[in-house]
Amino acid sequence: MKVSDIKEKLNLTCAAGEGGLDRELEGCYIGDLMSLAMTGVHEDMVWITIQTNINVTAVASLADAACVVIADRAVPDEATVKKANELELPLLTTEMTAYETAKALAALGI
């Protein structure tokens, strides 16, 4: 499954990093503490968080996440958007909670 598939099926909004929408994804991690996310997020995963600061892009890129879903109506900072565009790291926002997002991803087989 591709990032663009979950964007479409979960009705997520792409706030940045459209260049990475074609990337294949596998697995998911949920969390808002950077140190835990750093070790919990693995290559090609979806990372669900409510963090919106620029360090999200640093952690996601170092951990090789396929995309970040920013849950609970949170909006990424301007600097975060800029960096994610540079990195072609999709930042997908949603009104769903992290739990609802994870349930929807699980229903898709992720």
Partner: peptide, 15 residues
């Protein structure tokens, strides 16, 4: 508030 300060930095480095 930025998601740091969980007290996992040095333990992560060690691991």
């Amino acid at each position: 508030e930025l998601g740091f300060g969980a007290g996992m930095g040095l333990p992560n480095i060690k691991t």
